[in-house]
Simulated scan of single mutants.
Amino acid sequence: MPTIAVISQKGGSGKTTIALHLAASATQAKQPACVIDTDPQATAAAWGDWRGDFYPLVVTSPPARLAKTIERAHKQDEVDVVVIDTPPHAESAMREAIKAADLVLIPSRPRAFDLHALEAVAEMIEFAGKPAYVVLNAVPAGATRQIEEAKETARKFGLKTCPVSFGERADFHRSSAKGEVAAEIDATGKAAAEAKKLWTWVRKQIS
C-alpha cells in the first residue's frame, strides 16, 4: 500500500491542506485513503471530525507509534493509500514519516524564509534515500519569476520540485473550515483542478 509523507520544518507551509486534498483526491479516484495525523495540534483530525464518517479516514498517532498505525491502516480492507501529516519543527516525527514513506512531499511557499527551511529537510531526505519533491504552495498569480527562483533554491539543496503547485485559492481555505475539500464546494474551480492534478502526478510516482 503506497504511503506518502507530507513534511516541512516551517509552520504554515500548507502541509495539512495538501495532505487532506491529496487523500481526498485519491478517494475520489476510487482509491480510498487514510490520513495519519502526527501533529499534536491535530488539525487534520479536527477536519475529520467536522467531516464525519466519510473517506478519507483521519486517525491520530504519536510519531513513536507511526509504524504500528500504518500497519493497522494496511489491514483496513477499503484503504488503498496512506498519507502522513506531520508537525513543523519536529525532526523525530519527520524522520519517522520519511522512514515509513514511499514518497515524500515537502510543501513550501515560494518565499525566502520558507525556502530556507528546506535545507534541514534536504539533509534528512539525503540520509534516508527516499524520493522527495518540493510542492510549491500558496503561489501568487503570475509569480513566474518567484517559481523559478524557488525551484533553483530547491535544486541547490539537492531537491526536485513537483510540476504541480497550489495557488493562493480561497476554495482551499473555505472548504477546510467545513470538513470538505475544494472539489466539494466547486468541482470546476482552479483549486479542485490543482488537487486532482497533484494526485494524478503522485499516483504515477508511486505506481
Rank of each mutant, 00 (worst) to 15 (best):
Q76P: 00
D77L: 05
D77F: 02
E78W: 09
D80Y: 00
V81T: 11
V82A: 01
V82E: 11
V83G: 08
T86A: 07
P87S: 01
P88N: 06
P88Q: 11
P88R: 05
H89E: 15
H89M: 13
S92Y: 10
A93C: 14
A93V: 14
R95T: 14
A97K: 12
A97H: 07
A100S: 14
L105Q: 03
L105P: 04
I106W: 04
S108Y: 05
P110L: 09
A112W: 03
F113N: 12
D114L: 03
H116F: 10
L118H: 02
E119Q: 13
E119I: 00
A122C: 09
A122W: 07
E126D: 05
E126R: 11
P131I: 09
P131K: 06
P131M: 01
A132H: 03
Y133M: 12
L136W: 01
N137C: 08
N137F: 03
N137S: 13
A138G: 03
P140G: 06
A141I: 13
A141S: 14
A143D: 06
R145H: 12
Q146S: 15
Q146W: 13
E148R: 10
A150N: 08
A150L: 11
A150E: 08
E152L: 04
E152H: 13
A154T: 02
G158E: 07
K160P: 00
K160C: 01
T161S: 03
C162G: 04
V164H: 11
F166R: 02
G167I: 00
G167Y: 02
R169V: 02
A170Q: 14
D171P: 00
D171L: 12
D171M: 03
F172I: 11
S175H: 09
S176N: 04
E184H: 11
E184L: 04
I185E: 13
G189Q: 06
K190L: 04
